[in-house]
Design a protein around this nucleic acid. Sequence first.
DNA 1: ACGCTTATCGGGTGTTCACCCGATACCTCG
DNA 2: CGAGGTATCGGGTGAACACCCGATAAGCGT
Lengths: 216, 216
Amino acid sequence: MDPIRVVLADDHTLVRSGIRALLERFDDVEMVGEAANGREALELVEKHRPDIVLMDIAMPELNGLEAARRIHQLFPTTRVLLLSMYDNEEYVAEALAIGAAGYVLKDASAAELDIAVHAVARGESYLSPAVAKRIVEGQVPPGGEGAVGLQRLTPRQREILQLIAEGNSSKEIARKLELSVKTVETHRTQLMERLDIHDIAGLVRYAIRVGLVKPE
Amino acid sequence: MDPIRVVLADDHTLVRSGIRALLERFDDVEMVGEAANGREALELVEKHRPDIVLMDIAMPELNGLEAARRIHQLFPTTRVLLLSMYDNEEYVAEALAIGAAGYVLKDASAAELDIAVHAVARGESYLSPAVAKRIVEGQVPPGGEGAVGLQRLTPRQREILQLIAEGNSSKEIARKLELSVKTVETHRTQLMERLDIHDIAGLVRYAIRVGLVKPE
DNA sequence: ACGCTTATCGGGTGTTCACCCGATACCTCG
DNA sequence: CGAGGTATCGGGTGAACACCCGATAAGCGT
């Protein structure tokens, strides 16, 4: 039986190391890479084509949902298992919409992680019980702001917005995304118009409100 | 040599299991209990009198800082090693004030956790480099209780900061406060230097973090 | 009386932002 | 095919920002 090749992404090194230690207990799991943000995760997936990406949602640079969306599009054979602090309905709904193979809460047990990883590796899906419960019962899509609001933006615009809210200048964003400063400015102008928010402070508050970034 | 007896407290089971897996690699560490919140941690300390409590700050029921304070008072032989997501100055200052033996960031490496645990077990203290840097630079008064958070700003600076975070330009602020634009700019420069935050986005996140403004 | 902090105001310089105009290229949907 | 959305890049303009330098004045504690 071939080992399950896994890429792990979490911005907190200690948490990442801990989960890695748990995964290494499963003798059919092979760790092929670790990433500290969504962009690194994307690069590792492109390079190693793992079976599974186990990825936190809340990450700087490029968050887990956005990274998951792209991974699912670009490398459909790699299955994404998302980790999250909260059973936030907006997140769950969006995670399912973009083709994540599983959604595990951070208060899951090691045994549950075991089950989730192997289920996803077999091509099945896994949802933490609390999450599954919401899907079965609730069935009510977001309703609130969160994901719905963000849907008004294109993926590129969301990405730019996150980087702005994290304090990057247009020049820094251009460098990180390997774009022209002009392109970044255009995206910023477009998303400002679409959100009808016309200053940096407002963008930051909006990004925090919808959970794109944290106040830290 | 007696083993180092450790109680671990973190509200996220998966994170807790991961860190436990890391600790169990150290053959001189003996796990004597796990807690999901501060109150459980307190009970476990009373019951087992461990050498060390490794505890997250952000926990429900009773947070890590409050739990650390009581543990230090009631069981002074048990040393508290705090875990935190952020090098939040408010937290660091309070942690030091209540007698925590160490403060480790969650983006520390497993090797750093090793060093921290053994240092604290020997009766020494440990601070993550980023935290130590703040102490050395005098940004956090060791053992101080008054000069935390917003208290480091003058009333005028807090007023300006709030208006900035609410999306006002310097000109708008000057008009509202009946000041010269130059005066407003000076205040902004001063408070940026004092907070060591050098962009609008960072100021907005800070203002939200300390409750000066809300994301809405 | 002296030093320190706070608060006020100014000149100047370079960078970044916000918005105006333009363009090309790709993809999808009808 | 054509229309619309997305993504990319460019010129140009004026406002705002970030940081450098300077100053005056009031208050407060030693």
